[in-house]
């Protein structure tokens, strides 16, 4: 599997990873080598059933009761957050579009 620098840039953007130029080159080579290895799976012909995650409980998704459990976590999380507003109630981020 050939991996180009553009491919690296594309997935890096989807993953919101800023990469230095040398990192891009190194990662391109790494991805190419790893994806080359995983191409091993191509030799397997597997009759297609739907997708799914193996290994999860077979008997279905466990549920909880619809009960309110108030948490005080925000009182601990907000003061330790990277930045908050003056009253300390909102998380603050660089302006988001739209």
């Amino acid at each position: 599997m050939a991996v180009t620098l553009e491919d690296v840039d594309h997935v890096a953007r989807l993953a919101r990873l800023g990469l230095a130029d040398e990192e891009r080159h190194a990662l391109r080579a790494d991805l190419e080598s790893i994806l080359g290895y995983v191409d091993l799976l191509r030799e397997l012909e597997i009759p297609g059933e739907g997708p799914g995650v193996e290994g999860l409980p077979e008997d279905g998704c466990r549920e909880r009761l619809d009960e309110v459990r108030q948490s005080q976590a925000a009182d601990l999380v907000l003061p330790a957050a990277p930045t908050v507003d003056l009253e300390g109630r909102f998380f603050r981020v660089p302006k988001v579009l739209d």
Partner: peptide, 30 residues
């Protein structure tokens, strides 16, 4: 802007192997 904050934070915060696997995984799902 927001995008730059995300990218700078995650570039500085994650090491090489974590970035490698994030990219690999993003690729596998893309």
């Amino acid at each position: 802007d927001l995008l730059a904050m995300y990218q700078r934070t995650r570039d500085a915060g994650f090491g090489a192997e974590v970035k490698r696997r994030i990219l690999l995984g993003t690729w596998a799902l893309s």
